[in-house]
Design a protein around this nucleic acid. Structure first.
Lengths: 129, 129
DNA sequence: TACGATATCGTACATTTGTACAACTTGTCA
DNA sequence: TGACAAGTTGTACAAATGTACGATATCGTA
């Protein structure tokens, strides 16, 4: 199993990648359209971000008519996993519980939700991606 | 309440800032020494990062002998809060519960810890920074 | 008072990131 | 078959980031 550390995904790139995971695959146009309101990036910019993501090996494309249809070639979990890890390292000294503690203390997650999640892990011993 | 959005703190800067929060205050040398093992940055680089943090308004310094002693002037909570928010926005569509869900599913936090946190918020109705 | 150790300051420079225009290509329709 | 619309490609460029050297200032000491 070759396991080169994946290149950095910049914030903007991450946003694009998230969209692709959501919609499965899409043209530049479709990805543009799927951008959250309030986040306006020019068509050409989305295109550049897609180009860079492809170069970095996160997505690929096929031709459909004259347009490129992009789709992810990496698992969401892999990218998110490494992003979360480096984030937790930097801000919480590598302790995920400290992050959750922060969220709880600041009412970003409710007791009810924590309870639900707690039950979830208690009932499901193995992670399934 | 004036609430200018603080300038971005880069990853490396964040690491430095975290050290200052931990040790309270310190010279370039002291901050350098406090870097986690495996994270070697040249003295001069630490110095630059401290300079930039000061320029951005996150830290200040006083003179002690010939050395500058730096210390944070922003609350850890403010910086962490905005970092967490933008991180959750980008990767989890703004839903903190989705992040915790991820951590739980991937065994980065235990049921026991979740329970503890759950009890904590149930017993403490108000956040106190 | 001159010297070494230790600091800071000015500056630099390659990369990455965000953003995007202008030019060229290619289906499609009249 | 020729023009238009929609796409892609090449290229650009400022700002941020990571990294650090060389010059200069200063404290303590011989």
């Amino acid at each position: 199993m070759t396991n080169d550390p994946l290149p950095v995904v910049s914030p903007s790139e991450t946003q694009i990648l998230r969209i692709l995971w959501d919609i499965g695959s899409g043209t530049v146009q479709e990805v543009s359209d799927a951008l959250p309101v309030g986040r306006n990036i020019a068509y050409a910019t989305v295109q550049t971000l897609l180009r860079r993501l492809e170069k970095k090996g996160y997505i690929t494309h096929t031709l459909a008519g004259k347009a490129h249809v992009f789709r992810p070639v990496v698992q969401k979990s892999a990218v998110i996993g490494s992003a979360v890890r480096s984030f937790v390292d930097r801000l919480f000294g590598g302790d995920p519980a400290a992050l959750v503690h922060y969220l709880a203390k600041n009412h970003e997650i409710s007791a009810h939700e924590l309870e639900k999640l707690q039950k979830m892990i208690e009932s499901v011993p193995q992670n399934k991606g």
